[in-house]
Amino acid sequence: MGVIEIRGLVKRFGSTVALDGLDLVVEQGEIHGFLGPNGAGKSTTLRILLGLLRADGGSARVLGGDPWADAAQLHRRLAYVPGDVTLWPGLTGGEVIDLLGRLRGGLDERRRAELVERFDLDPRRRSSTYSKGNRQKVALVAALASDVELLLLDEPTSGLDPLMEAQFREVVRAGSTDGRTVLLSSHILSEVEHLCDRVSIIRAGRTVETGTLSELRHLTRTQLDVELAVPVPTELVSAPGVHDARLDGHRLTCQVDDGALGDVLARLSPLGIRSLASSPPTLEELFLRHYDRGGGREPRP
């Protein structure tokens, strides 16, 4: 049974449909990437999982409970970092960490000290003087220092510098090996690629793709970069399964559907392959392809 199980979730704000039958399953102990463009419904989903908003349809279970009816009990076992952290301007960072920790049911003092150190946070400063990144650190320390089973993180590193981002990845990965489950909504694809075991991609309130990164890549194309002994014959550009081909004398770069890879290589080898590099598609390429497909933008050639 999944830590998070969402089936056919629907949420409307007036006449706007924010979630339109969203499905999401997050298994125990995994770090699950939650990807989608702005306005796709990521934050709305997280807020329904927290019982801050009430779903209009479908079902959602968190840690085996009903996120709306059992909110307060469930929240002892999970921690949340919102995408845009706003703090009380007159309170210091240290006070906010202590407050949020206590209201969640207690902080691990050793971890708190370690995280404050690691994120290089000055807990004596008033929240009004913190930058966006520092406010995020306060919420992250409060969340990560508590002993919880599930972390819900909404673009948690959007304000952090690369050094702090690396610290964040390390802490989350360490937490995951301790058996913690993480749902990580993010725009930073390299972060998701590095951290996540499985990924769900949503668009316009629906899940369009879900699975491990290698599963997702299987359904897709491979990037080829080939140098031939002879000038590349132009008919290769229109061969079945070849996309985005670029010819440059002896050089061909293109994307090939995984199913057509054998055929394409069979046509290339008689021509004399001097060098060949193939790489799996990056998450970014997957991501872009999903949004381009019927997403209102022109489809890629």
Partner: peptide, 22 residues
């Protein structure tokens, strides 16, 4: 802005304590 305490006093650590502080 002058820095403040790095730890919260016990009186702040409840929703009522926070509401009163605000």
């Amino acid at each position: 802005v002058r820095p403040g305490p790095d730890r919260a006093r016990p009186g702040l650590l409840s929703t009522t304590g926070l509401a009163w502080r605000l």
